[in-house]
Design a protein around this nucleic acid. Structure first.
Length: 224
DNA sequence: CCAAAGATCGTCT
DNA sequence: GACGATCTTTGGA
C-alpha cells in the first residue's frame, strides 16, 4: 500500500511542523540482508540554535552535527552511551540546524530480519492461541525506542548523511496523515539538563499506539 | 509495576 | 576527563 516516497519539499519546514507530519509514514531500510522497516509512531522535534536540548544549540557546529546544517531530507545519525545509535531527519531550510528524532516505529516489513538483528528470534513468529493483539504488542519490542529501531533496521553511523528521498534508507507515504486529534504530545525524553527547554511539549506520538516508548510518562496532552 | 545501576565509547573541552 | 536525545538486567514491592 505504500506508494510513493516522501518528496524532499516535505522536509523543508520547521521541526515542530514536520514532527507530527512524520507520524504514520513508513521508514524503510534496504540492505543486502533484506528489507526492514515500519510505521513511525513517535518522534521528537529539536529546534536548533535556540533549543537547549538540541545538539545544535547555540549553533554548535562540529563534525558530528555538520549534517544538520545541510539541506533538509537527510539522515543525522549519532552514537549515544557508547553503544546505541539514534536516527534523526534533518529539516528546515539549509543552514538552519533542526531535526526530528525518530523514537519508535511499528514493525511492518522484514520482521524476522529485525528480530534477528535484535537477538529476538522468539519474536519472528506468532505464538500462542492466535491472539493477534498480544502478538502485535510483543513485536513492538523490536523498535519501541530510538536505539532499538536503529538496531532492528541496521542503522549506524554509516547512514549518517544519507538522503531519505534517494538512498536505500527511505521515508514513504503510507496511509493518510494521522489526524491531529489522534496525536498526543508531551515533554521530550532524557534532556533534564536542558533547563527551560526540558518541559517543552515537543514529543509527539500516535494516541494509544502500543509501540510508543515509555507509554506512561506524565505530562501527555492532546495535540493542539 | 518501578527504580537503580551497569554497560561502553565517540565527542568535545 | 566528563558526559550523554539509551537499553537491559536485576531486585524489591
Amino acid at each position: 500500500m505504500q506508494l510513493q516516497r516522501v518528496a524532499h519539499t516535505f522536509f523543508a519546514r520547521p521541526a515542530l511542523e514536520l514532527a507530527p507530519a512524520l507520524l504514520g509514514t513508513c521508514l524503510i531500510h534496504h540492505t543486502p540482508e533484506g528489507v526492514a522497516g515500519g510505521r513511525i509512531v513517535e518522534v521528537e522535534a529539536y529546534m536548533g540554535p535556540h533549543d537547549k536540548a538540541a545538539h545544535s544549540y547555540g549553533n554548535r557546529r562540529t563534525r558530528r552535527t555538520e549534517v544538520m546544517y545541510g539541506p533538509p531530507g537527510y539522515a543525522y545519525v549519532y552514537q549515544i552511551y557508547g553503544m546505541h545509535f539514534c536516527l534523526n531527519v534533518v529539516c528546515a531550510e539549509e543552514g538552519e540546524p533542526q531535526a526530528v528524532l525518530i523514537r519508535a516505529i511499528e514493525p511492518v516489513h522484514g520482521i524476522p530480519l529485525m528480530a534477528r538483528r535484535r537477538s529476538r528470534d522468539d519474536l519472528s513468529e506468532h505464538v500462542g492461541r492466535g491472539d493477534v493483539k498480544q502478538n502485535q504488542k510483543r513485536l513492538c519490542e523490536l523498535s519501541n525506542g530510538p536505539g532499538k529501531l536503529c538496531q532492528a533496521l541496521g542503522i549506524d553511523k554509516a547512514q549518517n548523511g544519507w538522503n531519505f528521498t534517494t538512498s536505500n534508507l527511505g521515508i514513504w507515504h503510507d496511509r493518510d496523515p494521522v489526524p491531529a486529534d489522534l496525536v498526543i504530545r508531551g515533554p521530550r525524553v532524557g534532556i533534564d539538563y536542558a533547563e527551560e527547554a526540558r518541559d517543552y511539549p515537543w514529543r509527539f506520538a500516535i494516541r494509544k499506539h502500543p509501540c510508543v516508548s515509555r507509554p506512561r510518562p506524565l505530562g501527555w496532552a492532546d495535540s493542539r
